[in-house]
């Protein structure tokens, strides 16, 4: 069974069509890179895939259930584009932020030994253990991204969905971050990554989807660079949309 399956998905903000007739399936263990020009609907498609919107037409199924009604929330880890701004100046520590990953498992009551173990191992896995008692808002952009990933690991999510996670992160931390993603993917986690840097995607992803409102390509990176999909998607058929990342 596919982790996520979109079938003829169409979605508009008011009168502005953002995603049109997109069908694609993401199999367990895949690392899908979602690319496309600015305003191509990448973010919206990702939000549709994890059930944050209900499609106007077509359907999205998440682990075999309709995505917008999917209740088993801990299986999905979502890191939004502005995750580095999450919480603003809230006095939340790294450990507190990572513990939030366990909240869907345990909305109230004491944390079990399993919960605590999941949190500690998530802190270790992304290398922020020594920052555990620091405030999230005092960390660098790269460290904050790792905390966001740790939260989804603590949730023991099966699907990790990231929207341009390295915006505002320095080059060195970015490379380390993508290596971490590749490692997590190698250990079985399904990853969907929205990214404007095509070089990063073709290096790390196992499959590419190229979007400009409609889906121009879905296949492996090697084929992608050989076809004209990129030029087609970025080329003539472009419309200026009201917003870049709605």
């Amino acid at each position: 069974m596919a982790v996520v399956e979109a079938d003829g998905v169409t979605f508009a903000y008011g009168d502005t069509p953002v995603v049109e007739d997109v069908s694609l399936a993401v199999e367990p263990g895949a690392f899908l890179g979602l690319v496309g020009p600015n305003g191509s609907g990448k973010t919206t498609l990702l939000e549709l895939l994890v059930g944050l919107h209900r499609p106007d037409a077509g359907s999205v199924s998440l682990f075999g259930e309709p995505a917008h009604a999917f209740a088993d929330g801990e299986r999905v880890g979502y890191v939004a584009q502005d995750a580095t701004h999450a919480g603003g100046r809230m006095p939340v520590t790294v450990r507190e932020a990572v513990r939030m990953g366990r909240y869907p498992h345990r909305p109230f009551g004491r944390f079990s030994a399993d919960d605590r173990r999941a949190v500690e191992s998530a802190l270790d896995r992304v290398g922020v253990r020594d920052l555990a008692d620091r405030r999230v808002d005092r960390l660098s952009g790269g460290q904050q991204q790792r905390v966001a990933i740790a939260r989804t690991l603590a949730a023991e999510a099966d699907l990790l969905a990231l929207d341009e996670p390295t915006v505002g992160v320095d080059a060195e931390s970015r490379e380390a971050f993508y290596e971490l993603l590749a490692e997590l993917n190698a250990s079985g986690l399904t990853v969907i990554l929205v990214e404007h840097d095509i070089g990063v995607v073709t290096t790390h992803a196992t499959e590419i989807a190229c979007l400009n409102r409609r889906l121009f390509f879905h296949g492996d990176p090697d084929t992608f660079v050989e076809t004209d999909a990129l030029a087609d998607a970025y080329g003539g058929d472009q419309h200026v949309l009201a917003h870049d990342h709605p």
């Binding site: 059930g51 944050l52 979502y78 919480g87 939030m100 909240y103």
Partner: peptide
């Protein structure tokens, strides 16, 4: 802390 993340988490 993270409204969108919380929604995605169900």
């Amino acid at each position: 802390f993270d409204e969108v993340g919380a929604r995605a988490a169900g």
